[in-house]
Design a binder for these strands. Sequence first.
RNA 1: GGCGGGAUGUCCGAGUGGUUAAAGGAGACGGGCUGUAAACCCGUUGGCUCUGCCUACGCAGGUUCGAAUCCUGCUCCCGCCA
Length: 396
Amino acid sequence: MESAASKSAQLTANAAEALPAGALEAKLELAEKEGRQLRVKLGLDPTAPDIHLGHSVVLTKLREFQDQGHRVVLIVGDYTARVGDPSGRSETRPVLTTEEIVANAASYEAQAGRILDQDPERYELRYNSEWLDMSMADLLTLVRTTTVAQLLEREDFANRYRSGAPISILELLYPLMQGYDSVAIASDVEIGGTDQTFNLLLGRDIQRHYGMAEQAVMTMPILTGIDGVEKMSKTKGNEIAIEASADEMFGRTMRLPDEAMAGWFDLLAIPSPPDVTGPRDTKVALSKAIVTRFHDAAAADRAEAQFVSQFVEHEIPEEVDTFRFEASGGSIHLPMVLAEAFGISRSEARRLVEQGGVKVDGDAVDSCDLDVSAELLSGAVVQIGRRRFKRFEPNR
RNA sequence: GGCGGGAUGUCCGAGUGGUUAAAGGAGACGGGCUGUAAACCCGUUGGCUCUGCCUACGCAGGUUCGAAUCCUGCUCCCGCCA
């Protein structure tokens, strides 16, 4: 039997922090002694419908807990989403409608299932509206646990307060609500990104006020987006969704700046290839590993081949969507048909032609020829830039 | 309750009567280059029936030959003092 110490060491291997020191190990020991599972909590913020690689870091960590026999309690923050987590933000989040939240939550659960073990013995899903839709009296009890000074210790609040930027009461309430989630589900461990450290630790205080054992806290480093700088997030458009196609996953990973690769290997728990290879090959290996994880090895090979053909050798891809155009007249006004085919405005189409960005069967269109013959387009592959293709077929 | 600040294009943010479709930055897109959908360089970035026209600087009016810029009212947001 493995010791609690070694299990703890294993779990914290690529974590940022495990707080307070020794707490996780103590929890593991306790669980073993009492012969029970640990309840490991993760709060999900259903403000965007897609799970991306950033979420996968934490979810994969939860999976490790499951593989050691523990129980993951996923909390869909359907109620807290009405408040908006201010973590790391300089402004108040927009509030979602109930319908959006419900739809996002459903999609979240389905996607989380790709990483987590959904065996009911080891998996529990809860919505925090279940307990946060509380009476005023209960809210007052909750609010009594914490002071404004405590909340203002949090870096983003402190910064905003100092600079005279607005802080809404709603936002101050968020950490309290999240902490109450820990009370409601009696969590033993809570996991989150390093930007959650304050909230996770406050959860301990709140549990204590309610006379409960305090949770251990584990934070995971934040995965950068494909820009290699900012936190991966849908809003910034630098994410790789775990539902993305193999080609998209591969290509987007190839966009990652070389310097950011090491962090990705570490956080995504992908073994680094031998360092005899150059950065290009390293990045290819990373891309293939990611595609393999969410699709399979064959898909990774195909994605690589596709990438090489399209972006290295600049070939027209084999499979191109067909666009049917009206070829009744003899000549076609290019901006019009491009706008229709690619969903851009005619002005934009005109600009693209002027910049030499439009190719028909590989040849750039002359900017003087805004009207072309229908025959030229018939059966041709029209290309905008390096990434957008459509096969034109006359509509007859 | 009092005082003050603010609302500009996808975002941030200049601009206080006239070459302003609106500086600058970010983002995005196109081209070049490249191991790369990286970096770097160049360019573009409201729409259209495109040597011109239309729409746009919170909303509604007004002044003016002419307003994002001045005036009036309204809506919303924020800070400070009490």
